[in-house]
Design a protein around this nucleic acid. Structure first.
Length: 104
DNA sequence: CCCGTGACATCGG
DNA sequence: TCCGATGCCACGG
Protein backbone atom coordinates (compact mmCIF):
# COMPACT_ATOMS: atom_id res chain seq x y z
CA UNK A 1 0.00 0.00 0.00
CA UNK A 2 1.29 3.29 -1.00
CA UNK A 3 -1.17 5.99 -0.25
CA UNK A 4 -1.54 7.25 3.26
CA UNK A 5 -4.61 7.07 5.40
CA UNK A 6 -5.65 10.56 4.51
CA UNK A 7 -5.27 9.89 0.80
CA UNK A 8 -7.77 7.07 1.18
CA UNK A 9 -10.15 9.34 3.00
CA UNK A 10 -10.00 11.88 0.20
CA UNK A 11 -10.65 9.22 -2.40
CA UNK A 12 -13.59 7.81 -0.49
CA UNK A 13 -15.01 11.28 -0.07
CA UNK A 14 -14.81 11.83 -3.80
CA UNK A 15 -16.54 8.52 -4.41
CA UNK A 16 -19.62 9.45 -2.41
CA UNK A 17 -22.48 9.51 -4.95
CA UNK A 18 -24.68 12.56 -5.33
CA UNK A 19 -27.72 12.55 -3.09
CA UNK A 20 -25.92 10.45 -0.48
CA UNK A 21 -23.93 11.33 2.61
CA UNK A 22 -21.18 9.54 4.52
CA UNK A 23 -20.11 9.91 8.13
CA UNK A 24 -16.61 10.76 9.30
CA UNK A 25 -16.45 7.46 11.13
CA UNK A 26 -17.51 5.57 8.05
CA UNK A 27 -14.78 7.10 5.93
CA UNK A 28 -12.29 6.47 8.71
CA UNK A 29 -13.38 2.85 8.97
CA UNK A 30 -13.22 2.24 5.23
CA UNK A 31 -9.79 3.82 5.25
CA UNK A 32 -8.72 1.35 7.92
CA UNK A 33 -8.98 3.43 11.09
CA UNK A 34 -12.24 3.02 12.93
CA UNK A 35 -11.31 5.65 15.48
CA UNK A 36 -9.74 8.18 13.15
CA UNK A 37 -13.01 10.00 12.58
CA UNK A 38 -11.60 13.03 14.35
CA UNK A 39 -8.60 13.08 12.05
CA UNK A 40 -10.96 12.89 9.08
CA UNK A 41 -12.65 16.05 10.30
CA UNK A 42 -9.26 17.72 10.40
CA UNK A 43 -8.61 16.63 6.83
CA UNK A 44 -11.85 18.17 5.70
CA UNK A 45 -11.09 21.36 7.55
CA UNK A 46 -7.74 21.57 5.83
CA UNK A 47 -9.30 20.25 2.64
CA UNK A 48 -6.13 20.09 0.51
CA UNK A 49 -8.18 18.86 -2.44
CA UNK A 50 -10.65 21.71 -2.09
CA UNK A 51 -13.77 21.78 -4.35
CA UNK A 52 -12.61 18.48 -5.73
CA UNK A 53 -13.41 16.87 -2.37
CA UNK A 54 -17.14 17.19 -1.54
CA UNK A 55 -16.62 17.61 2.19
CA UNK A 56 -20.22 18.85 2.37
CA UNK A 57 -21.35 15.27 1.76
CA UNK A 58 -19.66 14.24 4.97
CA UNK A 59 -21.70 14.62 8.15
CA UNK A 60 -21.66 13.41 11.75
CA UNK A 61 -23.08 10.01 12.63
CA UNK A 62 -26.16 11.66 14.14
CA UNK A 63 -26.82 13.32 10.81
CA UNK A 64 -25.86 16.65 12.32
CA UNK A 65 -24.21 19.03 9.92
CA UNK A 66 -20.90 20.19 11.31
CA UNK A 67 -18.21 22.58 10.21
CA UNK A 68 -18.57 24.57 7.03
CA UNK A 69 -17.70 27.93 8.53
CA UNK A 70 -18.49 29.68 5.32
CA UNK A 71 -21.27 32.19 4.60
CA UNK A 72 -24.09 30.99 6.76
CA UNK A 73 -22.17 27.90 7.80
CA UNK A 74 -24.39 24.90 8.38
CA UNK A 75 -27.26 26.49 6.45
CA UNK A 76 -25.20 26.66 3.27
CA UNK A 77 -24.05 23.06 3.60
CA UNK A 78 -27.57 21.88 4.35
CA UNK A 79 -28.89 23.70 1.32
CA UNK A 80 -26.32 22.06 -0.93
CA UNK A 81 -27.24 18.60 0.31
CA UNK A 82 -30.94 19.27 -0.16
CA UNK A 83 -30.14 20.47 -3.64
CA UNK A 84 -28.53 17.11 -4.40
CA UNK A 85 -31.59 15.23 -3.25
CA UNK A 86 -30.56 14.34 0.28
CA UNK A 87 -33.52 13.78 2.60
CA UNK A 88 -33.54 16.00 5.66
CA UNK A 89 -35.11 15.76 9.07
CA UNK A 90 -35.29 19.21 10.57
CA UNK A 91 -31.69 20.43 10.67
CA UNK A 92 -30.23 16.97 10.23
CA UNK A 93 -29.79 14.44 7.45
CA UNK A 94 -32.06 11.43 7.11
CA UNK A 95 -29.47 8.77 7.85
CA UNK A 96 -31.97 6.01 7.09
CA UNK A 97 -32.23 7.03 3.43
CA UNK A 98 -29.40 9.36 2.51
CA UNK A 99 -26.61 7.41 4.17
CA UNK A 100 -24.03 6.20 1.68
CA UNK A 101 -24.19 2.42 1.32
CA UNK A 102 -21.87 2.13 -1.68
CA UNK A 103 -18.98 0.21 -0.13
CA UNK A 104 -20.98 -1.61 2.49
C1' DC B 1 10.01 21.55 19.33
C1' DC B 2 6.10 20.66 22.61
C1' DC B 3 1.26 21.28 24.06
C1' DG B 4 -3.51 22.03 23.34
C1' DT B 5 -7.49 22.04 20.46
C1' DG B 6 -10.63 20.47 16.87
C1' DA B 7 -15.70 19.34 11.06
C1' DC B 8 -16.03 12.51 15.52
C1' DA B 9 -16.46 7.76 16.82
C1' DT B 10 -15.78 3.57 19.54
C1' DC B 11 -14.80 1.00 23.79
C1' DG B 12 -15.21 0.04 28.75
C1' DG B 13 -17.55 0.46 33.23
C1' DT C 1 -28.52 2.86 28.67
C1' DC C 2 -25.52 6.69 29.99
C1' DC C 3 -20.98 8.68 31.17
C1' DG C 4 -16.02 8.91 30.96
C1' DA C 5 -11.91 7.97 28.71
C1' DT C 6 -9.13 6.89 24.51
C1' DG C 7 -7.62 7.09 19.61
C1' DC C 8 -6.37 9.45 15.23
C1' DC C 9 -4.09 13.38 12.26
C1' DA C 10 -3.17 18.19 11.37
C1' DC C 11 -2.72 23.02 12.71
C1' DG C 12 -1.88 27.06 15.75
C1' DG C 13 0.46 29.19 19.63
Amino acid sequence: MRISFKEKVYKLTQVIPKGKVATYGQLARLAGKSKAARAVGSFMKTNPDAPRTPCHRVVAKDGSLTGYSMGKGISTKKHMLENEGVAFIGDKVDMGKALWDGLM
